[in-house]
Amino acid sequence: MQIPHITPTQDAELAARLQHAIDNKTKPVGSLGRLETLAKQLGMIQQRIEIDIVDPAILVFAGDHGVVAEGISAYPQDVTWQMVENFLANGAAINVFARQTGCALHVVDAGVNHDFGARDGLIDRKVAPGTANFAQGPAMSTEQCEQALARGMALARDVSGNVVGFGEMGIGNTTAAAALMHKLTDVPVSECVGAGTGLTPDGIVHKQKVIEAAVAKHGALPDPQSVLATFGGFEIAMMAGAMLQSAAMRKLLLIDGFITTSALLVAARIAPAILDYCVFAHASNESGHARMLAALNAKPLLQLDLRLGEGTGAALSLPIVQAAVSFLRQMATFESAAVSQQCM
């Protein structure tokens, strides 16, 4: 399977022009903080000074996990398909926040253990009805992993707009994300595992032991894609493929919380240049996310103690990105406002 080429955004001449345009606004240099960084990042991605946001969208990928059989979740697996129904009925938090921010929402069945049938608003890209139990064997075959990645890439090609947020739904996927994090960062399992949907302290210890035993069982793995196939989920793999394709198309990627960042971690190990295109929406309250962000040298935009998933953090970060666009496009320059730059 061919991974799409992602072009690094480095361009010294464009970076200098963008910085001049930002510094020439009627404000002290650097006084808009992260908004200035965001504006410059968008300019580097879009390769122009006149940056814009067109048709922002959020993709929510849903999938089930065989490792739920090990008792690693406070919720039953049926909650995955029930929450997908909630998305389709416009009743979930991500529906509320997407409406609030004027963002299109696309719900993708990557591998839910449920037959939805043909449904308005649901994109059916199901690879299989959930992964296998990675405590017993690989979560997916090499072929299934490649299929999920390829379907994510194809889906991203069909999404209009130049800003894409990512989210997920899948009971058991914090366990998969923690295992991926450990294998791709070497952070100890104990520092990767958290409460997920609300495990007790004893439940967290059990989840840790399940992952540690699985890691020992599978041993060394040759590359990031093998790690993904062994421990990941269909929604995580499909999301990683969509991220790779979106970056190759020079779109801005809004990365949500722990599970979404684990998909980005896989993608970044495959194609490091993808990080140039990412805005990390928030620091999740899920234990391990801060360490995962540190491994990616990522600075989150928000700290709201979220741990819901669904792309909610990505949706909440969009107005901040829009503000970065607005100041660069609309704010007066020193010359146009007849303001002395010396006083700044």
Rank of each mutant, 00 (worst) to 15 (best):
Q2G: 11
T7M: 13
D11P: 10
A12N: 13
A12R: 13
E13M: 14
N24C: 10
K25E: 11
K27F: 10
K27V: 04
P28V: 15
S31G: 12
E36M: 00
L38G: 01
M44D: 01
I49S: 08
E50R: 12
V54F: 11
D55L: 12
V60N: 00
V60P: 00
D64V: 01
A74N: 08
W81I: 09
G91W: 07
A92G: 11
A93H: 03
I94P: 04
I94N: 04
N95M: 07
A98Q: 07
C103S: 11
L105A: 00
V108P: 00
F116A: 02
G117R: 05
A118C: 13
A118E: 15
R119W: 11
K126H: 10
G137A: 12
C145R: 06
E146M: 08
N162L: 01
V163G: 05
G170M: 02
G170A: 08
A176K: 01
A179G: 08
A179R: 06
G196W: 06
L199A: 10
K207I: 02
E212F: 11
E212D: 14
A214L: 04
A214W: 11
A220M: 13
P224Y: 03
L228A: 06
G233H: 06
A237C: 11
M239H: 03
G241I: 07
A247M: 08
R250Q: 14
D256Y: 00
D256P: 00
D256A: 01
G257Q: 01
L265T: 11
P272K: 05
L275Y: 01
D276L: 07
A283W: 09
N285F: 14
N285Y: 13
A290R: 10
M292Y: 07
A295S: 15
A295G: 13
L302S: 07
G309F: 01
G309P: 07
V321T: 09
V339R: 09
S340I: 14
Q341I: 15
